[in-house]
């Protein structure tokens, strides 16, 4: 079975971590979507970010790997400041940041195996990728991961032949293949039914703990967040309004995060 020690790129004795300091993002100058966000995640912790729609949760996640450029603030991955990186250095930093998407974002016409292996595209050259000449160690890791997410029998199938839950598992495996130092998940269960959502959360938490990867999840299902994570960050209007343990998240807090109270039963 995979353990953290099999993952390459891990400095000895150092915990994997993500640290965000004073992060702000304004699409329109003067109207920040995110306002001075600071927190850090490390080790085997899993953190859920909750908050109303349009409050910048997706923007926050995408600022971490600079799919969206932050306006100001610093982002550290395992101690390395990646905020100012560009070009090749940025690509190398992105390899350390795994990401799971709401719409799975698999390459539909490629096989399950190729989708999982594409998590290694940041490590292998384009020529090798084109020849499908991935290193044997990558292929072994991919098979191990497929086994642990229960999709080993599907590895030859095309991604578009899978169900939503199965696709999201492939998406998770692809992110873990990167051997990341932080795993981001952007609404990973929003396209799935309630039962599958629980299964996907279980897989996410299990794999990230097994591989010693801190987990940061955007989620709007508060119950799922409370059940599966060790810490909850509530964001409202671009500000952190709650940061603490799931069992201490009260209705009062939810009122501050989402506003109003009629919806709370």
């Amino acid at each position: 079975m995979n353990t953290a020690s099999t993952s390459p790129g891990q400095p000895e004795g150092q915990q994997r971590s993500l640290r965000i300091e004073h992060l702000s993002k304004a699409y329109v100058p003067g109207k920040p979507v995110l306002n001075d966000i600071s927190f850090s995640v490390e080790g085997q912790n899993s953190v859920a970010i909750i908050g109303p729609s349009g409050t910048g949760k997706s923007t926050l996640i995408r600022c971490v790997n600079k799919l969206i450029a932050p306006t100001s603030g610093q982002i550290y991955v395992s101690g390395e400041n990646i905020t100012r990186l560009r070009g090749r250095e940025l690509r190398h930093a992105r390899r350390k940041i795994g990401m799971v998407f709401q719409e799975f974002n698999l390459v539909e016409r490629l096989s399950v195996m190729e989708n999982v292996l594409s998590g290694r595209l940041g490590y292998v050259s384009a020529l090798r990728a084109w020849r499908r000449a991935y290193p044997q160690s990558d292929i072994d890791r991919a098979f191990d991961l497929l086994e642990s997410i229960g999709l080993i029998d599907f590895y030859r199938q095309r991604a578009d032949s899978l169900s939503g839950g199965q696709r999201q598992r492939v998406g998770i495996a692809r992110a873990i293949m990167q051997a990341p130092h932080i795993l981001l998940a952007d609404e990973p269960t929003s396209s799935l039914d309630p039962k599958t959502s629980v299964e996907i959360m279980e897989v996410l938490v299990k794999l990230s703990e097994q591989h010693n990867i801190p987990l940061l999840i955007n989620i709007h299902d508060v119950e799922l967040a409370k059940r599966f994570t060790t810490r909850i960050i509530g964001i409202s209007r671009g500000l952190i309004v709650y940061d603490g343990r799931p069992d201490q998240l009260s209705n009062e807090h939810l009122k501050t995060i989402y506003g109003g109270e009629e919806w709370l039963s």
């Binding site: 790997n65 799919l67 090749r88 690509r91 190398h92 930093a93 992105r94 390899r95 940041i97 795994g98 990401m99 998407f101 719409e103 799975f104 974002n105 698999l106 390459v107 539909e108 594409s118 998590g119 595209l121 940041g122 050259s125 384009a126 998406g171 692809r174 992110a175 990167q178």
Partner: peptide, 13 residues
């Protein structure tokens, strides 16, 4: 664009 975003996020050249 989703699958392209995913590969970009993985640091693919």
């Amino acid at each position: 664009p989703g699958s392209i975003e995913a590969l970009t996020a993985a640091g693919a050249p």
